[in-house]
Design a protein around this nucleic acid. Structure first.
Lengths: 173, 173
DNA sequence: TAAACTGATTGCATTTTGCAATCGGTTGCA
DNA sequence: TGCAACCGATTGCAAAATGCAATCAGTTTA
């Protein structure tokens, strides 16, 4: 988990940043789940990250320039983690990664609907999403895009699948 | 390095396949470097992979359906590793990864020229490249695309940068 | 027949991970 | 005022992964 600089190859250097089992999961939860606090990331983690690993990765991602930390005015101990532009531009990579996983791996319906929509939305949707993330995390004014936020759209689709699955499981309810 | 299945999320499942420091490096060397043999991957590895790790990852990538192994008719001990369609479709992800790394990380000129060309070439170039890889690894006839192969184009650009750097370092030579 | 090369395997020290318990401090509620 | 819940971590420890060098048996080449 240190700065190897094994080579100056872009793919290698990218792997040295998030080529582990947790960094990209944390960024995914911040980007798609809107999580900003330690506990949100810890308890909301679907994959069950351990607190020491989370602390280590947050620190590391800050050192690498992917995240920043700020005090939460509402709570003297609370910290708010923000994505940097460097992390926000991972959106297209996450979209491709999700699309690839959806084709080749045993994804679950409810968890892959987001990836499906994001793939269908293509670059325009990614741009809108990144614009929204810049607003949320960097305080940059929103562009001209209108309508519900990309995150809300993805979240609504996720919940619709969950609801329809629950209905299918117990139609009488 | 085992099949966790921590969750059915496409991004998580993708990370479980190549979310480590070596798997994608090996695939990169096969895809862009054209390497097909154990020793080629071992000795040609810019990042210096250890032989036990290489053996482990090749085995694992085969179990995951990313690679296949076949006897080399020219040498009774030699094995030829081939990419599967699953691995070939990583090309767009590798292109995005390279593009991202080129922007945000301290890449070296000669190693990033490939990523730059691949980014500029966009989807048409990726499609041509995947077509060539399918021909090379799966025996599928080439499509209608003509001209020098993508790999040769990238390789030539790399060598041109190396040559120009050498010239700059010792102009009198 | 000897040297070089083939795809690995082994042993061992170091590092990283996963897991549970815990820390000192803050906040909200009774 | 007291106390439970919550805050972002930290610690200790066992298990797993990694890095490194040496080595393996069989194959090919000179």
């Amino acid at each position: 988990m240190s700065m190897d600089r094994r080579s100056g190859c872009p793919i290698n250097l990218s792997l040295e940043v998030f080529g582990d089992r947790w960094s990209l999961i944390i960024l995914r939860d911040m980007i798609f789940g809107g999580r900003r606090h330690f506990r949100e990331l810890l308890n909301g983690s679907m994959e069950g990250i351990a607190s020491n690993i989370l602390a280590d990765r947050l620190k590391r991602l800050m050192e690498l320039g992917m995240l920043t930390k700020a005090d939460d005015p509402s709570h003297k101990q609370k910290a708010i983690y923000s994505l940097t532009e460097m992390a926000i531009t991972l959106v297209p990579i996450l979209a491709h990664l999700g699309a690839w996983g959806r084709v080749w791996l045993p994804v679950s319906d409810e968890l892959s609907i987001r990836a499906e929509l994001l793939e269908k939305g293509g670059q325009p949707m990614w741009d809108k999403f990144m614009d929204e993330l810049r607003h949320e995390h960097l305080g940059i004014p929103l562009g001209t895009a209108s309508g519900p936020s990309v995150r809300a759209t993805l979240q609504a689709a996720y919940e619709a699948v969950v609801a329809s699955k629950a209905l299918a499981a117990s139609p009488a309810a």
